[in-house]
């Protein structure tokens, strides 16, 4: 081993050493110039422009979007929700939702031994939940229920909008045209789930969109991405391999909110107790 290292060690002459240093210097200067040039380009071209995060919804990117090809649905698994509020934070950041207005919120249900139901949603669950100290009864059950737009198939908000500003897309979304909305709030009255509000700055109706802008780019809604327990699930019912399809075809008990309203929601609940309204 020592003989090998001695063999590889070659004694350089003075000229050879100078030539080697000159070559490295040129190489160094080339690299500096290249780096400066590349850095300048980055100042002109926005870093990462045009690049999207990896696709989360199959069959959306890389082809012309076919409205009739998709049938999106949302499932909330109540048994998984821990009421951390991450979904609400993600939603507020995604849309800069004004204070005291809620595109999505979380409710805490506490059911006492005698059947009395206590529900609260401080700040819509945005900051999580502190233990309730105002109940002096033994509690037999407690759970969290995230709420958001039900994207009804027979949406009362769409029916009552006098100017057609609230409309339904063939792929299962109920959206608002903010340029057309007159701000009459009839839709706010008509929504049985109270997911709508009048935006204090835009002076139009506003509500959860299931992040339509993200979905059209093959991304999951912001709240679904943020949920640490996978309590919020989103997908295409036309894709038989999607988790949503599998859940809705499974023998699990699936419910919708206020079925008696005849709105036929596209938002489904897994594990919702009878107390949930």
């Amino acid at each position: 081993m020592s003989s090998n290292s001695a063999a590889s060690r070659k004694v350089l002459t003075k000229d050879e050493a100078r030539a080697l240093i000159d070559r490295d210097r040129r190489s160094f200067i080339k690299k500096v110039i290249g780096g400066v040039f590349a850095g300048s380009l980055l100042m002109v071209l926005e870093a990462g422009s045009g690049e999207l995060p990896p696709a989360q919804l199959p069959g959306v990117r890389g082809r012309e979007y076919g409205f009739a090809d998709h049938r999106f649905a949302f499932v909330v698994d109540i048994n998984r929700c821990i009421g951390c509020g991450s979904c609400c934070v993600a939603d507020k950041r995604e849309y800069n939702v004004p204070d005291h207005a809620y595109r999505t919120w979380i409710e805490r249900y506490l059911i006492a031994e005698d059947g009395e139901v206590f529900v609260d949603s401080p700040d819509g669950g945005l900051h999580g939940f502190k233990p309730r100290t105002d109940i002096d009864k033994p509690i037999r059950d407690g759970f969290f229920v995230p709420k958001l737009c039900n994207m009804c198939k027979d949406a009362p908000c769409v029916q009552v909008c006098p100017v057609g500003a609230t409309f339904k897309t063939p792929d299962g979304f109920v959206l608002i045209d903010y340029e057309r909305c007159v701000g009459c709030a009839y839709c706010v009255q008509a929504c049985p789930y109270a997911v709508r509000y009048i935006h204090p700055v835009l002076h139009t109706a506003d509500k959860c969109t299931w992040c339509y802008h993200r979905v059209r780019r093959g991304l999951l809604p912001a709240c679904v991405n943020a949920c640490p327990t996978k309590a919020r699930k989103f997908g295409d019912l036309n894709d038989p391999d999607s988790e949503i399809s599998k859940i809705l075809r499974s023998p699990e008990i699936i419910t919708v909110l206020k079925k008696e309203m005849g709105t036929a929601p596209n938002l489904y609940y897994l594990g919702a107790r009878q107390e949930v309204m």
Partner: peptide
């Protein structure tokens, strides 16, 4: 009692 968060304001 419990009022949905968006219902704290009466719109009409």
């Amino acid at each position: 009692g419990y009022v949905f968060p968006n219902e704290h304001h009466v719109h009409w």
